[in-house]
Design a protein around this nucleic acid. Sequence first.
DNA 1: GCCTCTGGATTTTTT
DNA 2: ATCCAGAGGC
Length: 745
Amino acid sequence: MDILSGLNPPQKDAVETISGPVLILAGPGSGKTRVITHRIAYLLRVCGVKPSHIMAVTFTNKAAREMKERLEGLVSFAVKGLTLGTFHSICARILRRDGKIIGIESGFVIYDDDDQKSLLKRTLHDLNLDPKQYAPSALAAAISAAKSQLLTPNDYYQRGRSYFDEITARVYEHYQKRLQESNALDFDDLLMKTVLLFRQHPEVLEKYQSRYTHLLVDEFQDTNLVQYELIKQLGGKHRNVCVVGDPDQSIYSWRYADIRNILSFEKDFPDTKVILLEQNYRSTKTILETASKIISANQQRKPKKLWTDNAPGEPVTIVEAYNEQEEAQYVITEIEKLVGRGEYSLGDFAVMYRTNAQSRVLEETFIRYGTAYRLVAGTRFYERKEIKDIVAYLRLIQNHSDSVSLARVINVPTRGIGEQTQARLLNWAKSMNVSTYEALRTLAQGTNDSPFTPGTAKQLTAFFNVMENFTAKSREVNLTDLFDFVVESLGFKGYVFDQPEGEERWDNVMELRGVAQEHNDLPPPDGLASFLEGVTLVSDVDSLQEGGSAVTFITLHQAKGLEFPIVFILGMEDGLLPHFRTIDDPAQIEEERRLFYVGVTRAKKKVYLLRAFRRTLMGRSSITTVSRFLADVPGDKTSSASTGWHEKADFSSALYAWNRLSPLSDADLMSGQKAAPPLPSTALPDPSTSRTGLKAGDRVRHSQFGEGTVIGLKTTRDDTEATVAFADIGVKKLLLSFARLTKVA
DNA sequence: GCCTCTGGATTTTTT
DNA sequence: ATCCAGAGGC
């Protein structure tokens, strides 16, 4: 049987044990993804299970997409009807179909963190609470914590101890009311409401339980209580539940993931078969042994014995740079050296770090050297204002109750509806006990009982008519036509162009149009719905395209599940890794160590661990402390390198003391003591090359615009903008982080 | 009602 | 260092 060939005995076991609960404990690089895809293929091809009876849950949409591709490669036909996605996207689907019974309209919108924050602010305002005293972010965290433990506002009242708990309970309750009014759910609601739906309506649960005869859950160590509850509910009938995880890679406890789910699983499913995948196929012996040493420093864990047949390979290189600029320079120099030898290409390298802020220096340095890179996250496309505005219009079209979107767009582009008017409108709607949108309708129908002057009433009515017009259109035409209609009716182009970097913003809008186009084959209302869902539930890694000719910059968290031939881990300093916010809690330190472990085990061939002697954080430069984790890295597996600043500085110890005492800037200290940076800053930005490996003159292809020639590249704060001349469309400026430009030979 | 300026906060990780 | 919210001027 070809589905089983090439698997080792425990892998084979994991694929073939399809009845009853299975817990697969899979070490890094042990072929976990392979096992999952083969298992599904086995179910389909050998056991004759229908795709529609299988649910597979992944951590990211990207993982889901890749799994589908690999699966289809294996079974060599298109798999239709399989339920495959993240917990969030699967729950959204369930609630759209069956949420009505617990008061969720199928057209609900999903509020992201930004929307959540807006709504919380309004809630605070309603409750006469000072947002300075009760930080919306802290309340959001508390509410999210509550929801992750299935606590309703009522439960919260009963648990409340401190004054802050009391406040939180009140805010939570009111916030939920506001969400309900807006027909909106936040991320945590997607999970929690699904569990509640199943609890309150066993007949609905029964429907799903019967349908899904086989359940698979990846990254089980990072599930929270609600997700685990869902697994128990859905798998409760057939009990063919297979969960795959690695406690040593649990790094999301701050998102209320709970390792104890692994222990609970064996208790809740007493006949669980446990399968260990311990052979590593990814890394060299040196890397695997180093990683094992690191993780065995954790007290709260079960020891396990990972092994590999791979060659010993090269030592782990530990580097001490002078500061973060030099740290980045070392990375580049090393990469250029290895690429120069022809052994590796840029796509083989990943640079990993604890905090997103660390990517900045990397970017600056890579831009200066003209080395191609790609940053995961950073520029979050969907967080741009012009994008959020359009999306808010589209959301409001789908769901007139969406108060956050309404508030966002009612005066965009400016139509003379200011804060006063908006506050008055909210109050008026409240007094009539209708939604804001319905209040507008009343006004438009010509009531003489409104609190507005005729002029203001006219403005509001105009806005209402615009929305009605959009809504009518949305029922008739496909998504891009609707998109164009909205954008044109609003005069959005002119509006956007009047703002700084207008052209760039406009091109972003056009990129969004390109995304909309992908939903065009669905009939009118569905296209909009599926587009909006995709827009909210995407994550940053989802857009990462592996390989290619650029170095990957990525946080340690995002790196989970990925692999690269060569990995650099930056900022091996106490305060960064482990992060200073975790340092007084041993449990959290252990999680930081797991994070480090995840980073190291991403590497196939070689690992570099870097630290800086001095580092500037939040505007303050100070001398660092070596990460305590380096003490766990076995000395016989490492080699040290230096960027040479010790030797170049003749009085390094004096310099050290001086640094401690003197408030002089880095520039003062470094003059004459350290090699000058390779290029003066006036040489940036280099117009002829970009971090994506494109240069002026290259032929490229764009999904919408067709083929064109790059005529210029400009690096902005967090992105590269390419100016491309397209044959049919003319000259366009495109953001490379988003526009999928492929080079044509 | 809208725009600009300034002081204050802010940075851990994300579906 | 950078971003955001609130205050004050037009």
